[in-house]
Nucleic acid binder design. Sequence first.
DNA 1: GTACCGGCTTACGGCATAGA
DNA 2: TCTATGCCGTAAGCCGGTAC
Length: 513
Amino acid sequence: MHILANRKGLQHGQKTGPITINYGFMKALFNIELSYDSGESFSITKNSSETEGRYRKLHHLVRADFYAAMLLQAVCHATTYDINNVNYASLYDALCMWYEDPISFYEFVISLKKFEQLGLITLVNRKENGRFDIQLRILEEDTYFIVSSPVVFTKGFTDLSLSHWKLFFAALLQTGTGKEKVLFRQFDNEQHDNMMHKGLKQFLHKHQASDVKRLIEELITIPVYNEKPLFIRPKEQLTYKYEGRKLSVAYFSVHPSWILSHKKGQKYHFPIQPVVKFSRFAWFIQHELEQLGLTEHFTNNIPLVNELISTLKPKGKVLSRHVLHKIREYIREQHVLPTSLTAFIQNVSRSRMKATIENLARTEGVHQWIAPHMNGEVKEQRTEAFVSRMSYFATPTLRKLFKKGYTYLQRYYTRLALYTSNDYKHVQEFDHMPMMKEIRKTAARKKVCPAAYAALEKEALEMWEANPDWERWQVTNELGKWLLDQLEHLPSQDTMAVLPPGVQLEDILLSFS
DNA sequence: GTACCGGCTTACGGCATAGA
DNA sequence: TCTATGCCGTAAGCCGGTAC
């Protein structure tokens, strides 16, 4: 089968395959119309009375009943015929996955309630969260199944009338699997306790044989999918037999395209995957995965999705989005997911946290006290240790600490600034460029804030990396001019950070917590 | 007597929205 | 988010009239 215009196809690019339908279940479904004329109704509104409210006929089959019956058989367990841990909404979601033109939510619910009342299904294990399990009633003597083509989920099929469907399903159940068969059906036959085997007029509730004939003609002529109709005429005999002028018997076959045989190993049942925890957050993650084109790496791997969600959940949406971007970068380079997703997420979020804390320290002015007068690896180690201590606090708390700390540090841990160009050495790649040496000297003379200048050099390095084909003179010219220009806009700082030997910034800050 | 047409009635189904 | 309801158009079902 092809990709259909249902949610499987449109949203997930998946094909819709055949399903198996159970003879006993379908027979019981049709047989609810044995009491068609009883007139018995059931209420579909809560406050129904004899005159008020809305009712549906209990023993009438309607379109929604077939939608529901096919879905239940598609998603039930292959041998136990049960459906676990679902609610109306999750079942309806599944219905929209299968059908190109789904019915409305409540019509579907009404059908399920009707099935329950008629004993076609049993709702068991109602749970506090409103979820339940469903057990399909399968008659022991009729447990055999028929493979149904996914054509029944197409709009071409559902656009046909209820009578068309009934006749098609009855014919398919009679044909079984594998081979085309010429079926013959009487127009009139009241006597049968199997609704499907009654006369066509009784089965389809048509008072006139010509109505039935019109239905059969339409089934033979109306193309449903790929230009093919549901029925074909028998090759070696007329379609109708008359008794005098009265239509007596109809002969037809199901179109061979819709008769499938059962293939070993093929999947015909598609249980609804249990809903993952943190449903709202899960939606967010699912949306992000789709946006980043990562869905395929997680499809059909519920444990992996759970690992992803439970690890990301405590980190919040902003950090999660960053982590997912990093996962995408990793996949682009390595073509596979990281071996340990959890370890990868923790690593990425740690380095992200470092950037967040450093940026916050910079904007609140305390960054210069993290590693005053240190350079290179020593400075890097000191920064790591600071970030590690501060990472236990949420951003708003950190901001408060930094604000309080800054006033205190300004007052007690500064001295008049006497900068040298060494205080402005940040990007090693620039160290041997004469023009950069000049720029650093200028920065020292102007007493430019060293932290702000450091950020500037870093930005210049990124510009260089973004233009790998630059010649050396271009690097000096382009970046040099740009740095000098930017230097004019940087804040100056008349004082410089100092800390007594053995005292670290975090010790001072934590005394405010 | 049966086939076919078409008008009338009613149950069904879609849609928007209220309510828990 | 999930379930329930009201409104309203229409498909399905019913039935009488007419043609063959």
